[in-house]
Write a protein that binds this DNA or RNA. Structure first.
Length: 895
DNA sequence: CGCTCCCGCCATGCC
DNA sequence: GGCATGGCGGGAGCG
């Protein structure tokens, strides 16, 4: 080629193309012959050249200066070349050149100098860590590659990793935008959450190190394979990038990078060995990890690790195990991420590097800001706090959010892990459901996304605050979430695979106003969506309580419909639905117990009956999931149109259905999740996600706030015990009149607690007084515990030994009452949550056993129309439509 | 000898 | 067909 070139070119002009050579030439001997050595560099030193040359070479090799020079040249060859090109200098190919070349080669040899890590450092050195927001630095791959003297391929390796952390984002072909580390903490936070969801269990469980391997291996099998690798977080070009970019198959390096980082963030020791990471990252057939695949993965991990090392996020270490010393990396980057960021972000969009303009992006996260918030929230959840909306503070809770959070982060491993587990479980359920059942949910979920849904859990932030989510996309809400989520969500089913997926989420949006309806026991808050965690009992929840209320509720809801959004959730929905029924509480409780005991699986939604479910519209097979029903119900409620039918049907005795469902539970449970539909969203602002507990798990149910986010929660089966659950939020106003809603945590004693028990179990500490004000109240319950749990509980920061939450007795009662029936009085949905705990380790499905569930809220008489409720309950008319919610919280603990 | 990981072939997907 | 990306694994450097 060279020759050819030469011929073309003026005979002695050096060729521009070959920078390297030229540079060398230049440096060394300016005047040599024109002949371009061109590839000399590459060539192995062909000839011995002259003795002199050799000498020179040796000398140069010996001399550091020379080397440096050479290096520099190498680095800047391109540039030089370009410059030189002009100069006709010459090529020298003389000995000298050659010699120089040789030198280079020799010196060069060091691979180290060419290492990706070093290259990355050079790359990073070119850009400020914290660029001014105003300045937009664009990176041209070609340019950088030439400047750094490497092939573009290498730049891709670096950029892909940086992109996974959002230090850069792709803007266009060959163009990347440098963001610096402004987003790093957020990204890490997100990854941490995601990691917790996905890997939390593993890590935590393993704490002890190597267990991972085992556990991991074990689990993996069980675990659902990760859903493909979608990027956990898809930061991909937010802006509009050509779809093409996205379309490409997922960039594994990017994904791997995120996962790898997640492992660190989730790991207690902050140290991850390569082999473990590789195993974990090998999704698919984990079992049969084939060696070659494993090796390949490790190679990739080295690439990533080199970049991360350059970023100062990790460092290489070695861990010694029985088997010997293993290479590992230790996280030396930030461990905690300030919340502020989120908020900041929220407010300042600009900061957000990745504005996701794209739909896709949007979907994924509503906005980064949102996401952030969500995360935050989640964290709070984890901590067991009520999800107090960050913004709204509810206050009174003993646990301040902050504290909680801290706890989460700090202590959190446990909590987080728990949460993670929950999430995982949920996810699994969902997936299962979706997969298996696909049905209802899908229907419900209009969006195609639903498929992805599974992951509701995913990071998505919940839009708790009305602010953010105020208007949830009607449809979008859920779907969106899902969409996003999916990505996140982890495939991993954590522990309990068996678990039932539960996740129904229904979200509705209300207008955001919290309306209180007169009687309602609970309110949904305003626009803001809430997340609720409920312990879903496997069985319980539904079972007892709520009977029919749903119908009523729904109806009422409808009636009210317009105004206040009413949301009811499934189980509770039943209750909820019947707003009026203040009464029944007691009975319900009893029922519950019975029911619970009965083993019913949790079905979230009652309504399943196929025939019955009117909702059918929305939900096809009633059977699918109760959750679905719920949603549907809601939807119905919410949406004027839909309506009632569903409700009515739903009304049917849920219990029975539930039971039936429950029985199946394991299987079906998963299906439960349902997402509220889009429709619902619109009208109903509030959206909730309800998650059914999986059987295996202690059952927890979650309600997520509607709009988008569904947080994902996972419970580790085993660990669950400690989780604390947030409770319901109530609008302040409502509260005033009401009794409160609380979610107490219960211990999950096996025996279900009747109301009384309930009270006993849970004492509510809330003082109502404060509530009166408009502000919404939050009650959180704390934990859920497995019976055994106690220790766990203790562990939890928030939860003290005692049952943490105590509501005033009165409240408690009310709660209990509510739970069953009361739900929504005014049409507002009420949510109840139950938490059950499985005593045993949740992980296994086995655990699923029907737990007891206890109490929840009964509606206090004070609540709305008790009567109605009772009736409903009594009738058992629960409508499917409304969602019933209960919270049962079992826990012993804490305050 | 085994850990690292550079290097670049080649597939993929868009234009 | 060309180009941008990036998966992938051979095999070499290094300790």
């Amino acid at each position: 080629e060279n020759i050819f070139d030469r011929s073309r070119m003026a005979p002695k002009t050096p060729i521009k193309n070959e920078p390297i050579d030229l540079s060398k030439q230049k440096g060394c001997t300016p005047e040599r012959n024109p002949i371009t050595p061109v590839k000399i560099t590459d060539r192995p030193q062909p000839d011995p050249w002259t003795p002199t040359a050799n000498l020179k070479i040796l000398v140069s090799a010996a001399s550091p200066d020379m080397r440096d020079r050479e290096k520099k040249k190498e680095l800047f060859r391109p540039i030089e070349n370009s410059e030189q090109s002009d100069t006709p200098d010459s090529l020298q190919y003389d000995i000298v050149d050659d010699s120089t070349v040789d030198e280079f080669e020799k010196q060069r040899p060091s691979r180290k100098q060419k290492s990706l890590g070093l290259l990355c450092q050079k790359f990073l050195a070119r850009y400020p860590n914290y660029p001014l927001s105003t300045e937009k630095t664009t990176i041209s791959l070609d340019e950088v590659a030439s400047i750094l003297g490497v092939e573009r391929r290498r730049i891709y390796d670096i950029v892909n990793v940086l992109e996974s952390l959002r230090l850069v984002s792709r803007v266009a072909k060959n163009q990347y935008c440098w963001h610096g580390r402004h987003n790093l903490s957020q990204t890490l936070k997100m990854l941490q959450h995601a990691g917790e969801l996905q890997y939390g269990e593993l890590m935590t469980s393993q704490h002890k190190e190597q267990d991972l391997d085992y556990k991991f291996g074990e689990r993996k099998k069980a675990i659902i394979p990760e859903s493909q690798d979608r990027p956990l977080l898809d930061f991909s070009e937010p802006d509009c990038i050509s779809a093409s970019a996205n379309s490409r198959k997922d960039k594994s390096l990017r994904i791997m990078s995120q996962k790898f980082v997640m492992l660190f963030l989730v790991s207690k020791t902050k140290t991850v060995t390569l082999d473990i990471a590789a195993k974990i990252l090998i999704e698919e057939t984990q079992d049969t990890v084939d060696h070659s695949k494993f090796k390949s993965k490790v190679r990739r991990l080295y690439d990533i690790a080199n970049v991360l090392t350059s970023l100062g996020l990790i460092k290489k270490v070695h861990v010694t195990e029985e088997r010997g010393r293993k290479p590992a990396f230790k996280w030396i980057g930030p461990v905690e991420f300030p919340e502020n960021t989120d908020e900041l972000r929220v407010h300042s969009p600009t900061s957000d590097p990745l504005p996701e303009t794209r739909r896709g992006a949007c979907a994924r996260y509503r906005t980064s800001a949102t996401a952030k918030q969500r995360f935050t929230r989640h964290s709070s959840f984890n901590s067991a706090q009520p999800y107090v909306a960050t913004r709204r503070k509810v206050s009174s809770e003993p646990n301040s959010p902050h504290q909680e959070r801290k706890a989460c982060t700090v202590n959190s491993d446990e909590n987080c892990s728990k949460m993670i587990n929950l999430a995982a479980v949920c996810r699994q359920k969902i997936e299962e459901d979706t997969g298996n059942k696909a049905c209802d949910t899908e229907k419900i979920l209009t969006s195609a996304k639903k498929s992805n849904l599974t992951l509701p859990v995913s990071l998505l932030p919940v839009s708790g605050d009305s602010d953010f989510c105020v208007n949830p996309l009607p449809q979008a809400v859920f779907p969106v979430v899902q969409a996003d989520v999916p990505s996140f969500s982890l495939p991993i089913g954590i522990s309990s695979q068996a678990s039932h997926p539960s996740l129904p989420a229904a979200s509705k949006t209300e207008n955001g106003k919290p309306t209180l309806v007169p009687n309602q026991p609970f309110l949904c808050f305003p626009s803001s969506s809430l997340f609720m965690l409920c312990g879903g009992l496997q069985e319980n929840n539904l079972s007892e309580p709520l009977p029919a209320a749903g119908d009523l509720g729904s109806r009422s809801a409808e009636a009210q419909a317009a105004t206040p959004p009413t949301v009811c959730q499934k189980r509770s929905s039943q209750k909820c639905s019947s707003p009026s029924p203040p009464v029944g509480d007691e009975e319900p409780a009893a029922k519950k117990q019975t029911l619970e005991h009965s083993d019913l699986p949790l079905s979230l939604v009652v309504p399943k009956k196929p025939s019955e479910s009117p909702k059918a519209e929305s939900s096809p097979g009633g059977g699918c999931s109760a959750a679905v029903h719920l949603e549907t119900n809601r939807l119905d409620l919410a949406s004027p149109a839909a309506p009632e039918t569903a409700n009515k049907e739903s009304t049917k005795p849920l219990e029975q259905e539930k039971q039936s469902q429950k029985k199946d539970p394991d299987d079906q449970p998963p299906g439960n999740e349902h997402i509220s539909k889009e429709n619902a969203n619109q009208h109903f602002q509030p959206q909730y996600l309800y998650v059914q507990p999986t059987a295996g798990l202690s059952s927890f149910n979650f309600l997520f706030s509607a709009n988008q986010a569904s947080g994902a929660m996972s419970l580790p089966a085993n660990q669950l015990p400690s989780l604390s659950v947030p409770c319901v939020m109530v609008p302040s106003a409502a509260l005033a009149s009401f009794p409160l809603v609380c979610s107490p945590s219960f211990t999950s004693p096996l025996s279900p607690v009747p109301d009384s028990s309930f009270s006993a179990a849970v004492s509510t500490n809330f003082s109502m007084s404060g509530l009166a004000s408009t502000t919404p109240v939050f009650m959180s319950t704390s934990a859920v515990v497995t019976p055994k749990v106690s220790p766990a509980l203790s562990a939890d920061p928030q939860q003290p030994a005692h049952p943490a939450l105590h509501l005033s007795p009165v409240l408690a009662r009310s709660c209990s009452a509510v739970k069953l029936d009361s739900p929504v009085c005014m049409g507002h949905p009420v949510t109840l949550l139950k938490l059950q705990q499985p005593s045993s380790a949740p992980l296994t499905p086995k655990n699923i056993r029907p737990a007891h569930h206890e109490a929840f809220f009964n509606t206090p008489g004070s609540l709305g129309d008790p009567v109605a409720w009772k009736k409903n309950e009594g009738n058992q008319t629960r409508n499917a439509s409304s969602v019933q919610r209960r919270l049962e919280i079992s826990s012993t603990s804490p305050d």
